[in-house]
Lab assay of single mutants.
Amino acid sequence: VTLFVALYDYEARTEDDLSFHKGEKFQILNSSEGDWWEARSLTTGETGYIPSNYVAPV
């Protein structure tokens, strides 16, 4: 499993987005949709879409 870490804070803009804080780690569930990836936060357990340019591989 490839994990990603948040480089910046992000505040959700829609109900499908996932808010997160810098340093939070994610498991990517689906990265085939372009710039927005479906991810699960390893901190909160919540699932939603995150901007791929806000995260980097651990």
Rank of each mutant, 00 (worst) to 15 (best):
V1D: 15
V1S: 13
V1R: 09
V1E: 15
V1M: 13
T2Q: 13
T2R: 08
L3A: 07
L3S: 06
L3D: 07
L3K: 06
L3N: 06
F4I: 04
F4W: 14
F4R: 03
F4S: 04
F4E: 01
F4D: 01
F4G: 04
V5I: 13
V5P: 00
V5K: 05
A6T: 03
A6P: 00
A6H: 00
A6S: 05
A6W: 01
A6M: 01
A6Q: 00
A6I: 01
L7P: 01
L7T: 04
L7K: 05
L7V: 07
L7Y: 03
L7R: 03
Y8S: 07
Y8H: 09
Y8P: 00
Y8D: 08
D9F: 04
D9V: 02
D9A: 06
D9L: 02
Y10A: 02
Y10N: 03
Y10H: 06
Y10F: 10
Y10L: 03
E11Y: 09
E11K: 11
E11W: 09
E11C: 11
E11V: 14
E11G: 05
E11H: 11
E11F: 09
A12F: 03
A12S: 12
A12I: 02
R13H: 11
R13C: 13
R13M: 14
R13G: 10
T14I: 06
T14Y: 15
T14K: 14
T14S: 13
T14D: 12
E15M: 12
E15L: 12
E15S: 13
E15K: 13
E15C: 12
D16H: 15
D16I: 15
D16K: 15
D16E: 13
D17R: 14
D17M: 12
D17G: 15
L18K: 02
L18D: 00
L18C: 02
L18Q: 03
S19C: 05
S19I: 02
S19W: 03
S19V: 03
F20E: 00
F20S: 01
F20A: 02
F20Q: 00
F20M: 09
H21A: 10
H21Y: 12
H21K: 15
H21P: 05
H21S: 13
K22S: 07
K22G: 04
K22M: 08
K22H: 06
K22W: 05
G23P: 00
G23Q: 03
G23T: 02
G23F: 05
G23R: 02
G23W: 05
E24V: 04
E24P: 00
E24K: 01
E24S: 04
E24Q: 06
E24L: 01
K25F: 15
K25C: 12
K25Q: 12
F26D: 00
F26V: 03
F26I: 05
F26Q: 00
Q27K: 09
Q27N: 08
Q27P: 00
Q27C: 12
Q27M: 14
I28V: 10
I28F: 04
I28C: 04
I28Y: 03
I28N: 01
I28H: 01
L29H: 05
L29D: 05
L29Y: 06
L29E: 05
L29R: 05
L29K: 05
N30Q: 08
N30E: 08
N30P: 05
N30S: 11
N30T: 09
N30M: 07
S31V: 11
S31I: 12
S32A: 12
S32N: 11
E33R: 15
E33A: 14
G34D: 13
G34K: 15
G34W: 12
G34A: 14
G34C: 12
G34T: 14
D35H: 11
D35I: 11
D35G: 13
D35A: 11
W36Q: 07
W36V: 07
W36S: 06
W36P: 06
W37I: 07
W37A: 03
W37F: 08
W37Y: 08
W37M: 06
E38F: 15
E38R: 10
E38K: 11
E38N: 08
A39Y: 01
A39G: 06
A39R: 00
A39V: 12
R40E: 07
R40F: 09
R40S: 05
R40Y: 11
R40L: 13
S41D: 03
S41R: 14
S41I: 06
S41K: 14
L42G: 02
L42T: 07
T43G: 07
T43H: 12
T43P: 03
T43D: 11
T43N: 10
T44S: 10
T44Q: 03
T44M: 02
T44W: 03
T44L: 02
T44I: 01
T44P: 01
G45K: 06
G45F: 07
E46H: 13
E46C: 11
E46G: 09
E46K: 15
E46N: 13
E46L: 15
E46S: 10
E46P: 00
T47D: 04
T47R: 09
T47W: 08
T47K: 12
G48Q: 01
G48W: 02
G48A: 03
G48V: 02
G48P: 00
Y49M: 14
Y49V: 08
Y49F: 14
Y49R: 14
Y49P: 02
Y49W: 14
Y49Q: 09
I50P: 00
I50N: 00
I50W: 00
I50M: 02
I50K: 00
I50C: 01
I50E: 00
I50A: 01
P51E: 02
P51G: 03
P51D: 05
P51H: 07
P51I: 03
S52W: 09
S52I: 07
S52F: 07
S52H: 08
S52Y: 08
S52A: 12
N53F: 09
N53C: 13
N53W: 15
N53A: 14
N53P: 05
Y54W: 07
Y54I: 06
Y54C: 07
Y54F: 11
Y54D: 02
Y54G: 06
V55R: 00
V55G: 01
V55D: 00
V55N: 00
V55Q: 01
V55E: 01
A56K: 11
A56L: 07
A56Y: 09
P57Y: 06
P57M: 09
P57C: 07
P57T: 06
V58D: 11
V58A: 09
